[in-house]
């Protein structure tokens, strides 16, 4: 059993991180903590993805003075996907943070529940749906 855990160490850590991030994204009330949860979730996926392409004992796929034999290198595609994913995650995080700043300026709180209560109050004052 320990050997199994050792062999799939990356996958297990990724799964634990994913659950932590996922539940933080969904259940935290604080917007900043939500965004941190989002980032943990993304990192977990990238860890899983990067470890799919890693082959123990091989080199990064960069041709300098090494051999041109493909069997000495790891699979580069997952690394490329991770890079793309990081770009996506950075832009989404930036967008979320900018919206958080706007909401904080308007409602002076980071608690999403409180914000929604204030929004509902605003709605009732205006008498609109």
């Amino acid at each position: 059993m320990f050997e199994q855990i050792y062999n799939h160490f990356n996958d297990i850590v990724a799964a634990i991180l994913f659950v932590i991030g996922f539940s933080n994204l969904l259940f935290q009330k604080n917007l900043i903590k939500k965004i941190i949860g989002l980032n943990i979730m993304d990192v977990a996926i990238y860890l899983l993805l990067a470890s799919q392409g890693y082959i123990s004992g091989r080199l990064a796929p960069i041709l300098t003075d090494g051999s041109e034999n493909a069997t000495t290198y790891i699979n580069p595609i997952p690394s490329g996907l991770v890079l793309t994913g990081i770009v996506v995650s950075v832009s989404v995080t930036a967008l979320m943070l900018s919206m958080t700043i706007r909401l904080y300026r308007k409602y002076r709180t980071l608690d999403l529940d409180e914000i929604l209560v204030k929004v509902r109050k605003e709605k009732e004052d205006k008498g609109e749906g």
Binding site: L26, L38, L95, M96, M99, R102, Y107, L112, L116, V119
Partner: peptide, 20 residues
């Protein structure tokens, strides 16, 4: 407006869970 940003942030949270 505050309401539309709050709506957008809820949309983002739900959507990001989906894309994750």
């Amino acid at each position: 407006t505050g309401r539309s940003i709050a709506a957008a942030i809820r949309y983002m949270v739900v959507s990001l869970v989906g894309s994750g």
